[in-house]
Nucleic acid binder design. Structure first.
Length: 260
DNA sequence: CTAGATGTTAAGGT
DNA sequence: CACCTTAACATCTA
């Protein structure tokens, strides 16, 4: 479920497994997930090089290549990495394989092909072009307040708008609003200062806690909403029934008793 | 068989 | 123009 916490976990996973080894070869199993780079240019830029360092901005992650350039990854709705011995069967829906010369390889897996791999020379430019909103873990209280003042739809859509705040998707917007005890349809422009502050703190706390739980719902605190998704679940705070509603085309989960 | 699912984006409305 | 919402994308599961 790649939102900011998931992507941060993937970034750390790459750090722990795949850095500083020579890339023997790249296998492109689905050419259509390459964005703005041909298979030939990807191979040319990557083969014989090493992954040196990683960065993340919102739901994008980047890996620098020895000598020059960066790989940019977007995980879509279903993406993840798997690192394992090269002779093992790679996961179903593997789209690109990076084979290292230590006998291991990193698989970039997407069930639905909504993710992307790109090559870019400059991460700052890439972010400016693709996702200029401030990362949700970096945004200041001032910028957060300004963003909400300028938004017109629901607070849930405002949190999910990647042009303003990068990294929050459907699942974590619900969790943030639950912890802030705010209704997903609340008007972002009409929140009083104290509510904006509560929401800001909930955003930072939820994202950090989720990363600490390795983005695994089973490891999250017992009073989190996320593990109750899709089970006809109950509110972990008041015991009421969790309601779902369509908000701007996405299913919002919330507790009508706790969130006003 | 149909609807819906964690995401982005182009196109269509205000 | 700035902003918002919808449909479409690809693939699998309930």
């Amino acid at each position: 479920m790649p939102e900011l916490p998931d992507v941060e976990v993937f970034r750390r996973y790459m750090d722990e497994t795949s850095l500083h080894q020579k890339i023997k070869s790249v296998d492109v199993l689905a050419r259509d997930i390459l964005a703005g780079v041909s298979e030939e240019d990807l191979k040319k830029g990557v083969e014989g090089h090493r992954l040196e360092a990683t960065r993340r901005h919102g739901k994008y992650m980047f890996a620098s290549l020895s000598d020059d350039g960066w790989l940019a990854f977007h995980f879509g709705m279903t993406g993840y990495f798997e690192y394992s011995k090269d002779e093992e069967e790679h996961p179903e829906h593997t789209r690109v394989l990076f084979r290292f010369d230590n006998g291991y390889r990193l698989a970039f897996v997407l069930q639905r092909k909504l993710g992307k791999i790109t090559l870019t020379g400059n991460v700052e430019n890439f972010i400016r072009e693709h996702n200029p909103g401030k990362d949700a873990l970096d945004i200041s209280m001032d910028d957060f307040k300004k963003t909400l003042e300028g938004a017109r739809g629901s607070i849930k859509s405002a949190l999910m708008n990647q042009d303003h705040i990068a990294g929050i998707g459907n699942v974590y917007s619900d969790e943030i609003l639950f912890r802030a005890r705010l209704h997903p349809r609340a008007n972002p422009g009409q929140l009083d200062a104290r509510t904006v502050e509560r929401l800001f703190k909930a955003m930072k706390e939820v994202l950090k806690t989720a990363i600490g739980s390795r983005a695994d719902p089973d490891q999250m605190p017992g009073d989190y909403l996320l593990p109750q998704r899709g089970k006809g679940g109950e509110c972990p705070v008041c015991g009421g029934k969790i309601r779902t509603e369509k908000i701007t085309g996405r299913t919002a989960y919330f507790c009508p008793g706790c969130q006003k």
